[in-house]
Computed example of a mutant assay.
Amino acid sequence: MFKSIKKTNSNSVLNINKLSVGYDKKIIAKDISFDLKKGELTAIVGVNGIGKSTLLRTIAGFQSKISGSIQVEGKELATIDTLDLATKVSVVLTEPIATKNMSVKELMALGRQPYTNWLGKLSSEDVSIINKSVSILELESFLEKKCYELSDGQLQRVMIARALVQDTSIILLDEPTTHLDLYHKVHILKLLKSIAHKTKKTILFTSHEIELAIQLCDKMLILDGQSNPFEEPCKLIENNNFDTLFPADMISFDATTGSFKIKK
């Protein structure tokens, strides 16, 4: 029987409805629905192998969906051409950049490629956007450095700045705190929250840092392979959605502290 797809919220920047993702028609995650608005920081969390990165890459248009709907600013993703999509969605993946021999300044300039002419010449507006992004991420002292000279935390800030330079309404990040210590994990996530709220960008990221996401995110999507709940963290706690995320005989969730406890 034909099922109609629900209408997209007019205030929605990214709308996902009844989405199934995977590879070669093999479904990894299914029945995923959520709706993001401007200025929201949202995390996708779940156990290893549940499909977090696959979902993010599908939303980015890097791989095909199996079924369902992905709408970016009210348009179905499949109908948006590559160049136009690059002005709407920027992506920071875990894969290393093509060449770390580039300077930070050169990498920043690449973020303006969707807008520059075929010569790649930067306009005064391009330069202004780059300078603003550099200032937000506090990268002034790194501009002349090669990317290979940066620490993991510094390089992650540079990659976020490059995405910001691309000036899209949506920024997608896959595990942005991987390989960072606790201080830098918190620093990056607080930075993302500040960017989302101050610039009204819609930021969606995958993460294993569930407790940090609970404290810092506006919304969360829990990929659990069943109902895949999406809500504000406090409501997910109220609904006991974190309680069954891990085997109960090993790990329990403490709703009063918003943290996981190991059963000894």
Rank of each mutant, 00 (worst) to 15 (best):
I170H: 02
F230H: 10
I5M: 12
S20T: 05
S128D: 15
K75A: 08
L192D: 10
E211H: 02
D181W: 02
T87S: 12
F205P: 00
Y148Q: 10
V104E: 10
K200N: 15
K6E: 14
I16E: 04
T257Q: 00
V47D: 07
K88I: 04
I50K: 03
T82D: 06
C234Y: 14
S123T: 15
T257G: 00
L83S: 12
G74I: 02
M220V: 12
I214F: 12
L122D: 07
S194K: 15
L182D: 09
F205Q: 03
V186L: 12
K18E: 15
K100A: 04
N241G: 02
N17G: 00
V186D: 05
M250L: 11
K6I: 13
L189P: 07
H197T: 03
N101E: 15
K6V: 14
L192N: 11
I16C: 05
D224K: 06
I50F: 00
A29W: 05
K190Q: 15
Y115I: 00
S169W: 07
I160K: 01
K26D: 13
K75R: 11
D224Q: 01
S69V: 06
V186G: 03
D174Y: 02
K146Q: 14
L172K: 06
T79D: 09
K200P: 09
K105T: 09
Y115W: 05
K145M: 12
E231R: 02
L119N: 08
N11Y: 13
D174N: 03
A161D: 06
Q215D: 13
G61W: 01
S169D: 15
M220N: 08
H179G: 04
I44Y: 01
F62S: 08
E232V: 15
I222S: 03
Q154L: 02
N239F: 13
S33A: 05
E231A: 14
S124D: 14
L137F: 01
S128V: 12
L143P: 01
L223K: 03
F246T: 04
I160F: 02
I195Y: 04
G61Y: 02
L93I: 13
L122K: 07
T94E: 07
Q63N: 11
I237W: 04
I136R: 00
A213C: 13
I160T: 05
D81S: 10
